[in-house]
């Protein structure tokens, strides 16, 4: 009478024998012995027919398992022992699987996301078509304020909202600042808002549609050194270990104090070159969140403070070593010669 133990020991013996056999011809012989029409497996299956139905199914499974284990083992061994030509040309071109190209903007966004998520930032996304309130008014830029001039705003044709004003295409990701305060309600906030922005300009260094990433940190006791630490960290991670940051005075309506942020030039590592002149390159703006902006987001500026920065993805991409793309309009051109490089 066939037993489970018999089947298992048969399987183990077979596997041991296979592993000790080296010649392909011998392995072929083993295959005939075990798996051939008159082989041992079929012999076992024949024995199954004499068993009672209950036993038949459990032992049948064991035989099946033995069969597939022996088959796999033989296949592996054959693969390992056969095809060993005496000469291999590793210098010849390989058969490449076709592979596509991730857009450089996506690559940069992925990298920026990873960098800021490491230090606890939450990636969010806010409307690309937004009310004047979030894009300007809540950011301490009332109607007709000269600070709006530089933003080259694109307006949507349509009626004004009674409270929130005109509908516009976001000129910057800063519209996420008050929206994030409204979402979170009570700090801490560490926001990373990455999105499409639009301005009425198109030339080799500007595109009418572009991308920005915006950082916003709000909590108790947030200070200028926290901004500096975050900038240094980003510079090292994104541009390289030797890259430093510096901040210089500037003016934005929605931050006080406001800064212009420079990083060490990646072409000359800060020595000064034809491209940067001073050893530094300007990347964008930053500042300590203006109390009026916190108030607009219903956060008490007496208790909380924060910093914010917002820069162009295209800008930081171009400053990567080796990526001095002279005409960024190429990014949005569906030019395959360009895209296939990435």
């Amino acid at each position: 009478m066939l037993t489970l133990d018999q089947i298992l020991s048969f399987k183990n013996q077979a596997l041991a024998l296979i592993s000790q056999t080296a010649k392909p011809a011998d392995l072929e012989q083993l295959r005939q012995e075990y798996l051939g029409r008159k082989g041992q497996i079929n012999a076992l299956i024949k024995q199954l027919t004499h068993l009672e139905p209950g036993q038949k199914s459990s032992l049948g499974r064991a035989v099946n398992e033995a069969k597939s284990a022996i088959t796999q083992s033989l296949d592996h061994k054959l693969l390992a022992t056969s095809h060993t030509p005496d000469w291999l040309d590793v210098t010849q071109p390989g058969t490449q699987p076709p592979v596509g190209h991730l857009h450089p903007i996506t690559q940069a966004i992925d990298e920026i996301t990873r960098i800021f998520e490491h230090i606890g930032f939450t990636r969010v996304r806010y409307p690309e078509v937004d009310w004047d309130f979030y894009v300007f008014e809540a950011l301490n830029m009332p109607a007709d304020h000269p600070a709006r001039d530089e933003l080259e705003t694109i307006f949507i044709d349509g009626p004004k909202h009674t409270k929130l004003g005109q509908m516009v295409l976001t000129t910057h990701t800063s519209n996420g600042q008050v929206r994030e305060m409204e979402r979170v309600k009570t700090p801490p906030i560490r926001m990373l808002n990455i999105g499409k922005c639009y301005r009425r300009q198109q030339d080799p260094t500007h595109t009418v549609m572009f991308h920005q990433f915006e950082g916003l940190v709000v909590d108790k006791g947030i200070s200028i050194p926290h901004l500096k630490g975050t900038l240094d960290y980003f510079g090292r991670e994104f541009f390289g270990p030797k890259i430093k940051s510096r901040i210089r005075p500037f003016h934005f309506q929605f931050t006080e104090p406001s800064f212009e942020v420079d990083f060490t030039c990646t072409s000359c590592q800060g020595k000064g070159c034809r491209f940067c002149k001073s050893g530094w390159v300007e990347v964008g703006g930053a500042g300590m969140v203006h109390p009026n902006v916190l108030s607009a987001g219903k956060i008490d500026p007496k208790q909380y403070s924060g910093f914010a920065f917002g820069w162009g993805v295209e800008r930081v991409l171009r400053l990567k070593p080796g990526l001095n793309i002279d005409d960024i309009r190429l990014l949005y051109s569906t030019n395959s010669d360009f895209l296939n490089q990435f």
Partner: peptide, 27 residues
């Protein structure tokens, strides 16, 4: 604050990543 900070010199201020609570209320 801005007047004092900029004349004091931003380059004289240290840089450190904030040690405050990390938010976890993701969208």
């Amino acid at each position: 604050v801005e007047e004092v900070a900029r004349i004091y010199g931003y380059h004289h201020l240290p840089g450190l990543i904030m040690a405050t609570t990390i938010p976890t209320n993701y969208p």
